[in-house]
Design a binder for these strands. Structure first.
Lengths: 191, 191
DNA sequence: ACCTGAACACCGTTCAAGT
DNA sequence: ACCTGAACACCGTTCAAGT
């Protein structure tokens, strides 16, 4: 896990500072202008050359994954809370809501997440697999409790959350979305 | 409907030829490289300057809408066929499949369609409203037949088809998609 | 009325040169 | 080892000049 280079000398401090600055600026730009925002503008505002940004984050997805670390931590914290929920159906439902909210952290995030879903080398893919695994856990509990259909997989529900996040990014501003959400919920529920 | 300019003289023939060439090239590029393909490349291969392309199709969406005319015609033809289907549930289901296929005409088409869904001035929006209306008709028949829940709207099912087309564009290559489809179908069905 | 090609502004990415 | 700024290739969009 420790990717520290061979020798550690003075220059590492400004490298770390640059990395932090890039990450800070990127988080703000992603939040304000979406996941597709100009990386050149991020570098400029962070006060570094474009090549420096590329050195630290070789792809846009790497930068996205790094910027998502804090929200991901919050999501995992919420997962811990939800493990204590007694009703398995409520636990699953609230987990799916939290998942949808996480996938809505940046406008335009669902598209690269979908692309990463079948591309194992993407930095976003790892996080996807982890989240699908957690969804499987909540789902299994609900299935044991008899409130979720046996044939459904965690991956399906992850995809459903991703779809809702996608439409939320360009909001369908009438009753379509709630109904669609109900369409999906009644799809996995046995109630 | 006839948008012919005030006076018609000789130059109109080469304008029409240019328009046809642009449209022909665009259809091929959209099909091969997706809805986000370079318009500059389209203009170049069509043998016109970029400004000529913009004169005929002021926005990318205008060009998309024009390129979709033939597939849209086929979809409307299929609608006519499906009106003759006796079982209302089968009619609705086959219409939704046809809709999903139409929305998958070009890779990356679902994104601009979603954007157009709430933006009345887009050339794609008009076609959306029409398709939602048709979906409402099939849905109403199924609801009268008792095979679809009363609270569902045509817009919901249009959105569901759009979502399936979106994920199909970057295929989720295992069982997730069929199950998600079933999630949605069981969402509207009363069976 | 229509077309053309140049021009402008922007972006992603890479590379030689510095420290 | 790391950073820098220039450079390259590309794209969308607009505009003055032609016919």
């Amino acid at each position: 896990m420790d990717t520290t280079p061979t020798t550690c000398r003075k220059p590492r401090t400004d490298a770390a500072r640059n990395r932090a600055r890039i990450l800070d600026t990127a988080l703000r730009h992603f939040t304000e202008r979406g996941a597709g925002t100009s990386l050149e503008a991020v570098a400029k505002e962070a006060g570094v050359g474009p090549a420096t940004l590329y050195r630290h984050f070789p792809t846009r997805e790497a930068l996205l994954a790094a910027a998502l670390e804090t929200p991901a931590g919050e999501l995992l914290a919420e997962r811990e809370e939800l493990r204590a929920v007694g009703d398995p159906d409520e636990g699953l439902r609230r987990w799916l809501l939290a998942l949808e909210r996480y996938l809505s952290t940046f406008t335009g995030l669902p598209a690269p997440v979908l692309a990463a879903l079948n591309c194992d080398d993407s930095p976003l893919a790892m996080s996807c697999q982890e989240l699908i695994g957690i969804t499987d856990e909540f789902l299994a509990t609900a299935q044991q409790g008899g409130t979720a259909r046996p044939a459904v997989h965690g991956r399906d529900l992850f995809l459903a959350a991703l779809l809702l996040a996608w439409t939320g990014g360009a909001p369908v501003d009438d009753d379509a979305l709630p109904t669609l959400r109900r369409l999906m919920e009644t799809g996995y529920s046995t109630r």
